[in-house]
Amino acid sequence: MAVVDIHAHFVPPRLLTAIDGFELRKDSVWPEQLFHNGRPLGPVIPRLTELDLVLDDMDRTGVDVRVLCTASWLFCYWAEPDLGMRFARTANDALAEAVAAHPDRLAGLATVPLQDVPAAIDELRRAVGELGMRGVAVGTNINGRYFDDPELFPFLAAARELDVPVFFHPDNVAGEDRLGPYKLVQMIGNPHEATLSLVRLLLSGVLARLPGLKVSFPQAGGSIAYLTGRIDHAWQVRPEAHAHTDRPPSTFLAECHFDTITHSTVPLEILLRHVPPAQLLLGSDYPWDMGEAVPGRYVRELNLDPTDQAAVLGGNAARLLGL
């Protein structure tokens, strides 16, 4: 069974110069960072932009197929809608070119301008129908709005109609203003943000209203495996928590997918008490330092039978994405 990495990032080099106002320059932390009209967006490193390095690292670490999305700081939900659409279309076109050059090794997840929901739906249809994208990567929130917001519901409905997965990537992390030192945003902020986004979906009734919607959360859903009992208890005793769904929140977890980026077997073992192995997807967060340098290391250390292990390492992703 092929090894498929569901969570990796790539920024095609031509994207860095394709938009008026983009500029690469050094800042106090990174040798190169991308700015747009003076606004810092995110760091640029060779393994993020050089496809030969991506492929070499796949060979070195035993990854057969890597599913790429742009860096989350290029979602650019802060931009005016027209500019946001230019960001998304340019990113999708450039990513599709990279995938087309190596279709047996790479697959792509689209990005869409969710600050304008109708435009995002149009771009999702184009990216899937014309460019062959296998799904869509979205921020966990859109300028502070989570996916229990009724205005975002039509986008999720469109993803279900197209039968493509929605990968929720931490972005605009809640409490970021208090997570400055010690790399806390990446260390605990991102998993917390994934948990927050997921729990709002579980309690809002969105998943009940959209049966069959394929959703995927990184970092094993953050702390969801530890908090499931507490969340179900709140649903039982608090009217606010069960106002929108007549099912215990935990019963929806087996309908969600989770990547395996945990840096330990323990969170995966706990998550597997709540969801079957068929819902786990190998992830690496390549090429960032908070990702897993050897994708699948902790999956292989789990006490899974060979069939389930092969499914987590690649079969589940192949099924979900139609690879």
Rank of each mutant, 00 (worst) to 15 (best):
M1E: 09
R14H: 12
L15D: 01
L16D: 00
D27H: 10
S28N: 15
W30S: 15
G38H: 08
G42N: 03
P46E: 05
R47E: 15
R47K: 15
T49K: 08
L68K: 08
C69P: 05
T70R: 03
L83I: 13
L83A: 04
F87H: 04
T90D: 01
V99L: 11
V99W: 06
A100G: 15
A101P: 07
R105C: 09
A110I: 08
Q115A: 08
P118Q: 08
R125E: 14
R126P: 13
G129I: 11
L131K: 11
A137K: 03
F147C: 01
P154V: 00
A158P: 02
R160M: 09
F167A: 05
P170D: 11
A174E: 15
D177Y: 09
D177W: 10
N190M: 15
A194Y: 00
G212L: 06
L213M: 01
K214R: 15
F217Y: 07
F217T: 09
S223F: 14
G229T: 06
H233V: 02
A241V: 10
H244S: 15
H244V: 10
D246T: 13
T251Q: 13
E255G: 03
H257C: 06
T265V: 12
L271I: 12
H274G: 04
V275C: 06
P276S: 14
A278F: 00
L282M: 08
S284H: 06
Y286M: 09
P287Y: 07
P287H: 09
W288V: 15
M290N: 14
E292H: 10
E292I: 15
E292C: 10
N303M: 05
L304V: 08
G322S: 11
